[in-house]
Design a protein around this nucleic acid. Structure first.
Length: 491
RNA sequence: GUGGUUUUAGCUCAGUUGGUUAGAGCGCCUGAUUGUGGUUCAGGAGGUCGUGGGUUCGAGCCCCAUAUUCCACCCCA
């Protein structure tokens, strides 16, 4: 076999023990919040049938799906088909079904919809599930963007209640607060409002183009958005109607009020506003949100009080004030959303969104199960990791593994050590015996590097006296103890 | 898919205008210390300079291709 340089595919990474400790801290925290709100865990395969995934994420999304090459003689099959059927197109598009019929999952929402349809007879609705698994995108890597990354999704199907949406806001707030993030914004919008706006302008068919363009307001400014809207088929007159809407500022309540006056003739738009108001109402009842109807001079909208300092980063504490902003320019790329849309951004680090989600009314309809509504959110675990790393939010000293190392002097000492090792392990103390009788220096260095707090030395003296030497690696103090005293000492 | 950037010891990085034997810090190994780590001191090992071509008397350095890193665009967690 030819030697090849050790490497991993572009955009993928190994996770070493120290990183896994931190990653699991994120996963465990998010999962615990999901469970607290009544969500149950499932997993689905890494690969799905290609047909399950295509067409769900838009044209750009389809391009980014990792396709899996069929096994077998796909080339011969294609040649065969070419000769038999004249109508067969011998090009990339026509060949694709022959080359690939499976693909790596692109997100967790579409596989979930597929899961619900396949298991509809076992499921009691409303069904709340969470899922923490990697997804793959054939994108070019850059800051906060990987080709393999983990999403932590909570989705619910079978309930139209906007209480679900309100709880998603609370889940975001609670989980990110527990992880130590202090200043982040949960943005909310509603597809129906966007549809209403497109309706008012008289270009409902251009809604996707409209949303893609105005979504970039933050990035390219008003001039950039205007330019893009013109390119996408809007007239200057359309844009004049659009401007006041996308530039509206103030508190959520002020924005809603001004939207209402613009959207009076659009039932869809008004429905969207009502939905937002309902969600805010629920959050008010939960006492996590308070409306701000008075107009203020502050440029920033919403309820952007300075984040309260929270001295205890203990899990369970909510360390940041809820910063929920209605953002009319928020669109989100996935085109299956029909109602509320969420996006979460950190304000402490330059990073794309660390979470997103929304309501989708007919995702299962694509797989033949009509009339089932769903909604969900996703946390981007890898981005959250990068943010936490940059802000140094990971707690220290959670990485201890082995509690005690028994040194290995010689064959006799090794045999003597085995029952001791067993006894320690039986008492639930993670322990290991150095596997060879290497030099003391080497064995103690091993303990040191692995940050093992205790070392037990067993040599001829100890075997004779029956009192083993316990060394505290931090203080360097050593004492002679019996086996009973020893296991009591190490906890 | 488009543009830029990175790649030299296990790791992080120097390396001048193209010129003799490619360096440093950390880590590793050996010894000072034959039962004692984390500090100190002395010594040592370790390099296809990402890969493949090319230019040149001569290439880590210049040219071409390709892989990879990071960044921006498109899009997105």
């Amino acid at each position: 076999m030819a030697n090849s340089k050790a490497s991993v595919p572009k955009g993928t990474r190994d996770f070493s023990p120290a990183e896994m400790v931190k990653r699991n801290y994120i996963f465990d925290t998010i999962k615990s919040v999901f469970r607290k709100y009544g969500y149950l865990e499932i997993q689905t395969p890494s690969m799905e049938n290609l047909s399950t995934l295509t067409g769900k994420y838009g044209d750009e999304g389809d391009k980014l799906i990792f396709k899996i090459l069929n096994s077998g003689d796909f080339w011969g099959e294609a040649e065969n088909k070419k000769q038999k059927a004249e109508s067969f197109e011998f090009n990339s598009k026509g060949l694709l079904p022959m080359l690939s019929e499976k693909a790596l999952r692109y997100d967790l929402t579409v596989p979930f919809a597929r899961y619900v349809v396949m298991h509809q007879n076992e499921i009691t609705f409303p069904f709340k599930r969470f899922q923490v698994q990697p997804v793959w995108r054939a994108d070019r890597p850059q800051k906060g963007r990987y080709r393999e990354f983990y999403q932590c999704d909570a989705d619910m199907v079978g309930s139209e209640s906007l209480l679900n949406e309100a709880e998603f806001v609370m889940i975001y707030q609670e989980a990110l607060g527990m992880l130590g993030l202090k200043d982040f914004t949960i943005k909310i919008n509603n597809r129906k409002i966007l549809s209403g706006i497109a309706e008012i302008i008289g270009k409902p068919e251009l809604i996707v183009d409209m949303t893609v363009a105005i979504d970039k307001l933050d990035k390219i400014g008003l001039d950039g958005v205007v330019k893009e809207l013109l390119e996408r088929g809007f007239t200057s007159r359309d844009i004049e109607k659009l401007k006041p809407v996308i530039l509206s500022e103030g508190s959520n309540e002020e924005k809603l009020a001004s939207l209402k006056s613009v959207l009076t003739t659009s039932d869809t738009g008004l429905k969207g506003i009502e939905e937002i108001e309902t969600i805010l109402g629920y959050l008010e009842s939960f006492s996590v949100y308070s409306p701000q109807s008075l107009s203020s001079d502050s440029l920033s909208a919403g309820i952007q009080q300075p984040a309260t300092q929270n001295p205890s980063a203990a899990p369970g504490s909510q360390s940041a004030t809820l910063n929920l902003q209605l953002d009319i320019t928020l669109a989100r790329g996935l085109n299956y959303y029909t109602g509320a849309i969420f996006e979460v951004k950190t304000n402490e680090v330059a990073m794309g969104s660390i979470g997103g989600g929304g309501r989708y009314d007919d995702l299962t309809g694509m797989f033949g199960l009509k009339g089932l509504t769903g909604a969900g959110i996703s946390f981007g675990a890898d981005r959250i990791y990068d943010v936490m790393e940059e802000l140094q939010l990971f707690p220290e000293s959670t990485s201890e593994t082995t509690k005690v190392l028994i040194t290995n002097f010689d064959a006799q000492a090794e045999r003597y050590a085995l029952p001791v090792l067993q006894e320690l392990r039986n008492k639930g103390i993670s322990a290991e015996l150095y596997p060879t009788s290497a030099k003391m220096k080497k064995q103690l260095s091993y303990a040191d590097n692995k940050k093992i707090p205790y070392v037990i030395l067993i040599g001829s003296e100890e075997i004779q006296s029956g009192r083993l030497t316990l060394k505290d690696m931090k203080s360097g103090v050593q004492e002679q103890l019996t086996r009973e005293e020893l296991t009591g000492k190490i906890k």
